[in-house]
Amino acid sequence: MNSKFAVYTLKRLLLALLTIFLVIAITFFTMHAIPASPFSSEKARSDAVIAALEAKYGFDKPVPVQFVNYLKNILHFDFGLSTGWVGCTVADLISDAFYYSARIGFTAGISALILGVCLGAAAALNRGSFLDQLVQVVTTALVSLPSFVMATLLLLIFGLKLKLLPTLGSQPGGMILPTLSLMLSPTAYVTRLTRSSMLDVMGQDYIRTARAKGVKNSKLIFKHALKNSLSPVITYAGPMMANILTGSMVVENIFSVPGLGRLFVNSMLRTDYMMIMGVTIFLATLIVLMNFLSDVLYKVVDPRIQFE
């Protein structure tokens, strides 16, 4: 069991590393297929500076050599110099912005998981009740709302009409609305997953056995039912973080949060190729690692699942 688990984890890790490498390659070669030079932006730089930069980043060398150089630099967390924000390195800008995105994204993700599991379990345990029907209708509606519609509606209702919450990310409490807009649809999804999985588990024989043996209701729910119905939720946790990260691109723009998503969109507007490459690779690495974690955790939580 343990050695099998180690082999599985190793395989997944290799796959994750291969994927990250592929993302870097795709990003690098698509960006290099564009004829424009990364330093040909309108921001004036002296010829000497451009020559020095080209020498440092090796733009005079053939593309494969540049790729190897770029890979080596990434290993030192050096993503090159930003051309849209003069004088800043891509790595600095990313790490500054990551703080905000991580705060919103982490809060949104964790609250979505907790709230979703609680609501889903409650709905499943009271199947057919008013609560269950309400949960079903609301979650169906929420998963059909794109993040930008959700964010703009929340901004309009709570920020501008009712004036209950601040609309800018920099104001105190300004993180509430962006976090809400990011967490609502994952919450709905987790709720649905938990509900259907819980219903499935509650119909199993061991639940009936436990009940017949006189296990207390609370213990039955938390120890026997809930624990066994969490595995689909865990497999969803990885893709959920990917959703939240990509969703943050629109949400951070709407609420002016200086996070990664906004940085990404701005770098596209400024055609800052080094920045686009850096943020793409950074976000993709995060997503791939999250998926890896949720894959491994899935096997840890549910030992019934067979290893390949």
Partner: peptide
């Protein structure tokens, strides 16, 4: 495992 939205944007 490739993040599709990022690749579309790219």
């Amino acid at each position: 495992s490739l993040p599709d939205v990022l690749i579309i944007i790219l």
